[in-house]
Design a protein around this nucleic acid. Structure first.
Lengths: 196, 196
DNA sequence: TTTATATACTCATTAAATGAATATACGGAG
DNA sequence: CTCCGTATATTCATTTAATGAGTATATAAA
């Protein structure tokens, strides 16, 4: 059998943009590869984007409507199905299960969680932190089961433990910053409510 | 044009094993996926391994000799060419240029550097640390050029800076441990030289 | 009028990854 | 002594993904 179908992950980013409003491939490409800061963590070629859209449609997560062009070529406008919407929310609200997926996939989740509001981000961060603590104790466990003379193994496990430890600290500091903003915004609201 | 040929990286691991002694695919697979701790950072399927060997041969880095089987099936024994050997040493002794390559590729380099001896590891670590400091100042720069209200950008850059910072600390602590071992070994040598 | 650029997508080609298949020898059970 | 599973050693067909280039129309500019 062939290269196994990777269990999606970055296609969800497309769902995330479609969740905001229906859009066609060309505009979606301009948005993603242009001004949107998601381009800090994910870059896609135009032809790849069209292929991904097709796959999402095959999976029933999005649907296309042809918009005939008068002053422009025909457009293939995509919008989420209700399954697509549920699938996206489930993805956005759940932590990643491997350290290697923090770099792109988790940062992408954060991107959309921020759009959804501070509470969504805070929930996501808490859940991810819990998973990270599991990783951390696993790596500490690995280290304990490694003898002094297994130099390479120790180096690898120390690397992993230190990276996860840092991710946890970063999550915590991000949580605090978001929390502070939340409080300062609500304080301002209170303030303007009083003075008005 | 097609998916571009990735500029090698983990194929070098195969070169590293061939550098130790000529070997055929089946034994190589058993070694890599079995007892060798390199399996902590890289796993390969048997069929993939054969494909990689073929590619390395096409690239002129290894050569195969058919060893006819009397008490076993025919073997395709591979050995390094002199270009292959040079290519491997150059790879092993040079740092990686992207943070995402620390996790597997740099750890693989460390594996072979350890086999070559403590001095090789120490050199590699120093070079990698220098590169990491460049990354770090780049990320700090990114952060400085990001305004307070670009929340997402700040989160991403803080993540990256913290990860690199931790890699530097891990490199430093690894360097110390290797250095200590070197000194304790040479101390023992001196000691046994005295007492003998 | 020609020419370049923006719009919007489609396609052919290639690389990589994988499970399964192939083929031979060997050791032990019945 | 034969049958059958396991170890040895490699090859193959299939699928998916990724990419540069190609197509086609409209609009703006020279």
């Amino acid at each position: 059998m062939p290269r196994q179908q990777a269990p999606l992950s970055l296609e969800y980013i497309l769902l995330g943009f479609l969740e905001q409003k229906p859009i066609h491939g060309y505009d979606l490409y301009k948005q993603i590869s242009g001004f949107e800061p998601i381009s800090l963590v994910w870059r896609v070629k135009q032809s790849q984007l069209y292929a991904l859209l097709e796959r999402l449609e095959d999976d029933g997560l999005i649907l296309s409507t042809v918009i005939p062009g008068e002053s422009h070529p025909n457009r293939n406008q995509y919008h989420l199905t209700s399954i697509g919407r549920q699938t996206f929310y489930a993805w956005r609200n759940s932590p990643v299960q491997h350290g290697r997926d923090i770099r792109m996939e988790f940062l992408a989740k954060i991107y959309f969680a921020l759009l959804a509001g501070p509470e969504t981000v805070l929930d996501l961060i808490e859940e991810q932190k819990a998973v990270c603590y599991e990783w951390l104790s696993q790596f500490h466990n690995d280290l304990m089961n490694t003898s002094e003379n297994q130099i390479y193994e120790r180096i690898v496990f120390q690397y992993r433990a230190s990276q996860v430890q840092t991710i946890i600290e970063w999550l915590e500091s991000t949580r605090k910053e978001i929390g502070n903003q939340l409080r300062s915004v609500s304080a301002k609201k209170q303030n303007s409510a009083k003075t008005s």
